[in-house]
Design a protein around this nucleic acid. Structure first.
Lengths: 214, 214
DNA sequence: GTCTATAGGTTGATAGAC
DNA sequence: GTCTATCAACCTATAGAC
């Protein structure tokens, strides 16, 4: 009997170093190779070589190739909870924090999400995971939307627009930047307004008339 | 000698039906299968079957598997020019037109862009194509930004923010919606503010203080 | 849990007739 | 230009020793 159906949360509560580190090494190697070569060119053989283990170990831990990719996807999505953390404070500072945190998360998660797109089985698996566990960007929209609505009530944000729509503008621009950076290249991302500029712009737009203004 | 290095623009200027239609059928079949199964599970065998041609034909036209994918990517990116078309008119109407056109384009182009991510060779190929031909979302940002700047000059859009940043907000939200729709599912996209709501919100935000208001 | 060795099945690509 | 037939390579997955 193998732990092939491991969901990668086995020793989530355990402190210190896991039994051997082989499993983590395999996941890390897979993420590296995914970034370098893409999902189609990812072979269990090379994963094993990169991780410094035998190919048999890969199958022992993850059952099959799909299991490995699934583990990587879950790994990439794990950090998502952190982004949803409630947060108070000033509007500009919160937008800055939120967008920075989100972009850091996307930099990892997008590798996983894109990898899932290369295989229908993984794609629907991820989709179901999202649907049943109420995950996805809409959670970010809800979280940031809730903050912005409170700010509206406090008179810090103009009230004539939907808070969720504002949140979507923030998240959309982060998503666009990180996506292009990953799909085309870091250099290319230079051609976009940068994150801080976007935060400035959004802050200006959200400020109620007669306060910030030019 | 084979036309393996065809760039898919062979009969771009030709009217009427191309020689046999085999080539187009192969590209169309590939796009279908890419949507259904993903790039990793795409085999030349199945492409041929779906297109109703032999596998040999696939290799005759595109040289190798990468050539086929490259042709599909170029096909997906071809429509991009249309989105850049200059456009005048009212701000709200232009935002509506632009976002609608962009989302229609992305619905096709993203299949190609995501497919390119599954293979390092294709990825860098696409990146170079973007870099040398000055393609990519930044073009959309420039185009819409130019329109918005004119609108600023005309007093139709507030002047205390960068036009490009505003354009990025528009494009980012379109990109986010179509991406999630494609990566997770059409149902999931329901959880987002819809396109028309975003246009409304943006229009409100862009209107100079003391004109539109609540 | 990790390794080696190997089986079994697919797949991309080629050759040559039509 | 399109087809059929076929090859050579590769990759996933398994079995069994340690």
């Amino acid at each position: 009997m193998t732990p092939a159906d491991d969901t990668d949360q086995a020793h989530a509560r355990r402190r210190g170093r896991p039994p051997s580190g082989g499993r983590e090494a395999i996941v890390a190697a897979t993420i590296d190779l995914l970034r370098e070569r893409g999902a189609s060119r990812l072979t269990t053989r090379e994963v094993a070589a990169r991780a410094g283990v035998s190919e048999g170990s890969v199958f022992y831990h993850f059952g099959d190739r799909s299991g490995l990719l699934t583990a990587v996807i879950n790994h990439g999505l794990r950090a998502f909870g952190e982004v949803h953390g409630e947060r108070g404070g000033e509007v500009a500072a919160t937008l800055d924090w939120f967008s920075r945190t989100l972009e850091g998360f996307l930099d990892i998660a997008l590798v996983a999400m894109i990898a899932a797109q290369s295989d229908a089985e993984l794609r629907t698996g991820m989709a179901n995971h999202f649907l049943t566990n109420n995950l996805g960007p809409h959670r970010g929209i809800e979280a940031l939307g809730a903050f912005l609505r409170r700010a509206q009530t406090a008179g810090l944000v103009r009230r004539d627009v939907e808070a969720e729509s504002l949140a979507m503008l923030v998240i959309g621009s982060c998503f666009l930047r990180v996506s292009q950076q990953q799909m085309i290249g870091a250099d290319y991302a230079t051609k976009f307004p940068d994150r801080e500029e976007m935060v400035r712009t959004l802050t200006t737009l959200l400020t109620p008339a007669g306060e910030g203004g030019a």
